[in-house]
Design a protein around this nucleic acid. Structure first.
Length: 663
RNA sequence: GCUGCAGUAGCUCAGCCGGUAGAGCACGUCCUUGGUAAGGACGAGGUCACGGGUUCAAAUCCCGUCUGCAGCUCCA
């Protein structure tokens, strides 16, 4: 039987089924040097027999698809190197897939890999690449044949489990390069030489077999590979950039927050960090007011009978903190703010005229996260959510959801998060509520998301136990993805708390509730903002906005104090550095502290009522009238601008002689 | 929680094979009064994470606990 292939130019080719990719590539125009082929978007490597036709194009070096193939083979090269160095019988191979930024291979081996092993393995990998071993593929049909093949090559329990879980009658493929053979679906490059030498082993980590914490812990080596050395170097540079932005380090250096040993998973907010917190709170409150929310505050401790009602005792208990029983009552610390909010709703008899009722709460919650997942501000046990619960009628649900999606986008715009991604998370395995409730909620969300016109992704089983949700993820300034907002529809909370309102027709009706947080939590959001801005916050968010520096502290002290007074009168956070020391050193300190503006006052400025403006990025804007500067900065902060209002756009190169490390 | 690694001055780190602690920066005092990223001198500062053990002797070796880091699993 012949298969038909459509080339990119529209022409058609026919080959008998089973023709190896290699033979097809040979007479495909523009395919010399191809690493593999793509048929209808699926890989067909040069070793594999074609089983179906379709749109055909080559996978060339330098492309994303090509990189995937190269990395896959690089994983095999790594496994081969480990087998050579540690002995083929000392190690058992699990899986070695390609991931976003590289690849890994999981090994079961007695020897505990150390960082010193990595260069040795790399060296052996280079040898294998230089040997340019051709890869070959062989196939067997059926599980028995696959198992027999595996048995012949030594212990392969993990591979056998993979075979066991694939459908009967499958074709199993093995790839060999030199003395190394691995059960593998492919695709792979023609020979190990095609892997090249732009690869790097990154780290060793434990990983459960099949991600199951009850199963065996394997040793995983992470690595990455590129086509060219320069690409690898650039990738390493980006990793270092991410490291440079680490909020745990910046938070300490900038005096924003710290982490006490006595309370793992909780932060201490230092005065400067607290200024940022208050600015965030202030802007959120402004927007809440504008959108018709009212703010409440509810207890941290609630009797366990409440948590039974909400279902937390059944579905969330291991994440909750309970106090010792006192006077025969068991109190749990709230991991969520919903019960308190429901109690607010229960206050008095509600009318349909009050709906939608939008209750906001900056609620302090505690969640007993497993110790191993804690990390900086992005994963803590004690945090404050910018939470709100919207009580509305089923008819109002879509409008409210629509408004919330717009709200989220408005807030993220404040920080310059342009790339916002939405996910629709549906019913998880452990959940409360009826099928009908879930179906209704999922449909309402789906319809709003579709109507929003923005693309969204399904996250099956990712919902909360009480309802489906929209999760928002954003990309930061160095394109890392973060989960922030969540909007959750909940039909079951009103049931559980027996919430109702008097409808227009006089009957009692059940409201729907939407839980939502936009920042997510102040803690996580702030950690992300520190990394997003690399600690150089926009003016409005900067703990210290302006520092006034005298050229000669004895002579211009009064002028400096007057400038600070004018700045403070305009609502700006400013101080003067009147200590002893040279001006250069003071400017350096202000720059390191990432203070957005330095105003320098010398004899000339003091006399003319001017200030010399210097930005933290090193741009010296020269002398300007104080009043003008104060007004410009006041507006820049009040409008919450992301970019400086004085001087050239950020990123403008500095004049030649001033190239020094900048904040 | 699990696997691996780590914990010495406020910070970054040295202190290897055991003989009761050191540098740079930061901090304080004094001198220096200067034009856009580091002026100088002197000084103070550590129960070497905590608890046990081995030893004549432990920051150093062993065990346990706590905390952190990289992952796994999980999540705002």
């Amino acid at each position: 039987m012949d298969l038909e292939f459509r080339l990119p130019d529209g022409s058609l080719r026919r080959y008998p089924a089973g023709t190896p990719g290699r033979d097809i590539a040979r007479d495909l125009p523009g395919a010399s040097g191809a690493l593999a082929l793509l048929v209808d978007g699926e890989y067909l490597d040069l070793h594999s027999p074609a089983r179906k036709g379709g749109a055909l194009r080559p996978v060339l070096p330098g492309t994303e698809e090509g990189l995937e193939v190269v990395r896959h083979t690089a994983a095999h090269v790594m496994a081969q190197a480990v087998a050579r160095l540690f002995g083929k019988d000392a190690v058992e191979f699990a899986i070695g897939p390609v991931i976003d930024e590289g690849f890994y291979y999981d090994f079961d081996i007695e020897h505990a890999f150390t960082p010193e092993d990595l260069p040795r393995i790399e060296e052996e990998m280079r040898r294998i690449v230089r040997e340019d071993l051709p890869l070959s593929r062989s196939e067997v049909e059926g599980k028995d044949a696959a198992r027999a093949r595996l048995d012949a090559s030594g212990k392969a329990e993990f591979k056998k489990e993979i075979v066991r879980d694939l459908p009967d009658g499958s074709v199993f493929s093995f790839y060999s390069q030199g003395e190394f053979t691995d059960l593998c679906r492919g695709p792979h490059v023609p020979s190990t030489g095609a892997v090249g030498e732009a690869f790097k082993l990154l780290s060793v980590a434990g990983a459960y077999w099949r991600g199951d914490e009850k199963r065996k812990m394997l040793q995983r080596i992470y690595a990455t590979a590129f086509f060219r050395k320069e690409e690898l170097d650039e990738w390493v540079r980006l990793k270092e950039e991410a490291k440079r932005r680490d909020h745990r380090v910046l938070g300490r250096e900038l005096g924003l927050f710290k982490f006490p040993e006595a309370s793992p998973g909780a932060a201490i907010w230092l005065p400067k960090g607290m200024i940022c917190w208050r600015e965030l709170e202030r802007v959120i409150r402004e927007k809440l007011d504008a959108r018709g929310y009212v703010e409440v505050r509810t207890p941290v401790l609630l009797d366990s009978s409440v948590w039974k009602v909400t279902g937390h005792m059944d579905h969330y208990r291991e994440n909750m903190y309970f106090l010792e029983k006192q006077e025969d009552r068991l109190f749990g610390m709230k991991p969520m703010n919903c019960p308190g909010s429901a109690m607010v709703f229960q206050e008095g008899l509600r009318s349909y005229r009050e709906l939608p009722l939008r209750l906001a709460e900056f609620g302090l919650v505690h969640r007993n996260e497993k110790s191993g997942v804690l990390g900086g501000l992005t994963r803590v046990r004690s945090f404050v959510q910018d939470d709100a619960h919207v009580y509305c009628t089923p008819e109002q649900l879509e409008d409210e959801l629509r408004d919330l999606v717009a709200f989220v986008r408005e807030i993220y715009g404040l920080f310059g998060f342009a790339d916002i991604r939405m996910y629709l998370a549906t019913r998880p395995a452990s959940s409360t509520g009826t099928d009908a409730m879930w179906r209704n909620a999922e449909e309402a969300i789906g319809s709003v998301l579709r109507a929003s016109g923005a693309p969204f992704v399904m996250d099956p089983g990712g919902g909360a136990f009480y309802g489906p949700k929209i999760d928002f993820k954003v990309l930061d300034s160095i394109r890392r993805e973060w989960q922030l907002a969540t909007i959750q529809v909940d039909f079951s909370l009103p049931e559980k708390f027996d919430l109702d309102y008097v409808a227009q027709d006089g009957t009692r009706k059940r409201p729907v509730v939407i839980h939502r947080a936009i920042l997510g939590s102040f803690e996580r959001m702030f950690g992300i903002l520190v990394e997003h801005f690399a600690g150089a916050f926009p003016l409005w968010l900067s703990p210290e906005q302006v520092r006034v520096v005298p050229v000669s502290e004895e002579k211009q002290a009064d002028a400096c104090r007057a400038a600070v007074a004018a700045l403070r009168a305009a609502g700006l956070r400013a101080s003067a550095d009147l200590g002893s020391g040279k001006m250069g050193a003071k400017i350096r300190e202000a720059t390191i502290a990432k203070v957005p503006y330095c105003l320098v006052i010398g004899g000339r400025e003091a006399e003319s009522g001017q200030v010399a403006v210097r930005r933290r990025d090193g741009h010296d804007l020269g002398a300007l009238p104080l009043g003008e500067v104060v007004e410009a900065l006041r507006r820049e902060a009040a409008e919450r601008r992301l970019e400086p209002s004085l001087g050239p756009p950020p990123g403008t190169p500095l004049p030649e002689r001033k190239r020094k490390p900048q904040a």
